[in-house]
């Protein structure tokens, strides 16, 4: 199935994705989805479209919102970037460790560097900041400046 077919299929299955799917080049597809629909679109792309491996999770400070991008790929080399946006006050996402156990470390990174809480994540070490790092300091937020 080509990425153009996947795009058409996504827009048909999820009408709210009209205009939110783009294929900027071969083997890359970007899907922009609201937080209310992230879980169902994620389930669809992982279980039905074969994007069964996780490359990374990127957190973004977008100013008014926070962005979270799940970069999932197929064994054939296609990568789908599923982007969602979170309210700035108490930003939170649900864990995707049910699909990808390896998501654990990337989700801890979201919490440490951007202050995005991950619901359902098993207890564990923080990553990557030191244990003594002051609470409420999130280095990848745009307003945060390194002192040195």
């Amino acid at each position: 199935m080509s990425l153009e077919d996947i795009k058409a299929g996504l827009e048909q299955t999820f009408p709210f994705l009209q205009g939110a799917v783009s294929v900027p080049r071969p083997r890359r597809i970007f899907v922009d989805v609201g937080p209310a629909h992230t879980a169902e679109v994620m389930e669809h792309v992982v279980l039905r479209l074969g994007f069964s491996s996780l490359s990374a999770i990127t957190g973004l400070d977008e100013g008014a919102t926070f962005g979270v991008i799940y970069h999932v790929n197929t064994p054939q080399g296609d990568v789908l970037s599923l982007k969602t946006h979170l309210e700035r006050t108490s930003p939170a996402v649900k864990t995707v460790t049910g699909y990808f156990p390896s998501a654990d470390i990337y989700e801890r990174e979201l919490t440490d560097l951007l202050g995005i809480q991950v619901k359902g994540l098993a207890p564990g070490h923080r990553y990557p900041l030191p244990d003594s790092w002051p609470a409420g300091e999130y280095p990848l937020r745009k307003g945060w400046k390194a002192v040195c």
Binding site: I105, L113, H125, R126, L129, P139, W144, A146
Partner: peptide, 14 residues
Amino acid sequence: MSVRLGYNHRGIEK
């Protein structure tokens, strides 16, 4: 076994 990483975190992305 549990793994704790982060000791080489240097701020490159920021």
